Amino acid sequence: MSVPKYKALLIACITLFLCGCGQALSEREIVRAVFFARQQGQYSVCLLLADQNNNEDGLHYKTSSARGFTAAQALHRAETTLPGRLYYGLIDLAVLPADADWQTARELGSLLYDKAQPAPELSVFALDTAPHSWAEDAAALYEDMKSVRSEYRLHCGLQQLFTQADCCAVPGYRADSGYDLLLLAKQQPAPYRAAGLAAQLAAVLCGQTNRLYTTYAGGTALCRARIDVTVQDTTVQLHLRDTAFEVLTQTGQDLQALFCTELLQAFAALTAERSADFFHLQFWHANLYGPRSPAPAPQLTILWE
């Protein structure tokens, strides 16, 4: 087979795959995001879809939403209100309820896992606690969360809900700036929600970002940095590079020293609860000294490079 014919056959196979073996992509309902919320003991689900019938310039969306006693029931009801066949291959956002616990995150992750393949760019967020109208707010929430993901180089995929047997971490949406980070443990009924510098440090330790871009010192200063993490036993080393401090309100304080103090305080708060190994510290210690060896209290070292 000649090279041009081989390329033509390859293009045709890819086209058939994307179009569902005969059904044009333009005739399908392209899902871009799925939002889950809990309201009055029921699940509310919203599908945000590309509106391919809108002739105006730019990207436009439409929504389909429904309620159910379970997340699966609500999702099925939202799907059945649409005339076309759903296509999840381009989905890039899944949003959990604001009060999601470990079990909820795992259940919703499992529910979406098969539907979302092959969508490697899918990111998971948790909703904020503000009331939302899906018809009015879903598109703006979607764009805001994508902006947070891009600005903070932040990514939590579906697979990260299953990397540890007893815990996981999910970024939480904030309407103002930055993001929270929800630490969900199997044995805890409610998530631990870290904010500000602590949230960004937790995301770094979880491997969900290598950037810090946060205010500190009560909002009087701002820090930008790239961070690499190395671990020696239970001593975490933060390697900060391209660090820049900015004064937002003049206080006359040593910005670097104050930043180090708050980093250490945030690390102590994040690692105070040791029933779950959010940052794999107990895992590495067990690899060195055996599964039943007691791990010492974790330590943090800050290295400026």
Score class of each variant (00 low, 15 high):
residue 6 Y to L: 14
residue 6 Y to E: 07
residue 22 G to K: 11
residue 32 R to D: 00
residue 33 A to C: 04
residue 41 G to L: 12
residue 44 S to F: 02
residue 47 L to T: 02
residue 47 L to H: 05
residue 49 L to D: 01
residue 58 G to M: 14
residue 63 T to L: 05
residue 70 T to N: 08
residue 73 Q to N: 09
residue 78 A to Q: 09
residue 78 A to R: 08
residue 86 L to R: 03
residue 86 L to I: 06
residue 89 G to N: 04
residue 90 L to I: 06
residue 98 A to G: 07
residue 98 A to R: 04
residue 99 D to P: 04
residue 102 W to R: 07
residue 106 R to K: 15
residue 109 G to S: 08
residue 109 G to R: 08
residue 113 Y to E: 08
residue 122 L to M: 11
residue 123 S to T: 12
residue 125 F to W: 14
residue 146 K to I: 05
residue 149 R to S: 08
residue 150 S to W: 07
residue 152 Y to L: 12
residue 159 Q to T: 12
residue 159 Q to H: 13
residue 162 F to W: 04
residue 162 F to K: 05
residue 166 D to Q: 09
residue 173 Y to K: 15
residue 182 L to F: 12
residue 186 K to R: 12
residue 187 Q to P: 00
residue 192 Y to T: 12
residue 200 Q to V: 07
residue 203 A to L: 10
residue 211 R to K: 14
residue 213 Y to G: 13
residue 224 R to E: 15
residue 224 R to K: 10
residue 224 R to C: 11
residue 229 V to P: 02
residue 232 Q to M: 06
residue 246 E to F: 10
residue 250 Q to T: 10
residue 256 Q to A: 13
residue 260 C to P: 00
residue 262 E to A: 02
residue 265 Q to M: 00
residue 270 L to C: 00
residue 273 E to A: 09
residue 280 H to R: 13
residue 284 W to E: 05
residue 284 W to Y: 11
residue 289 Y to S: 01
residue 291 P to F: 07
residue 302 I to V: 15
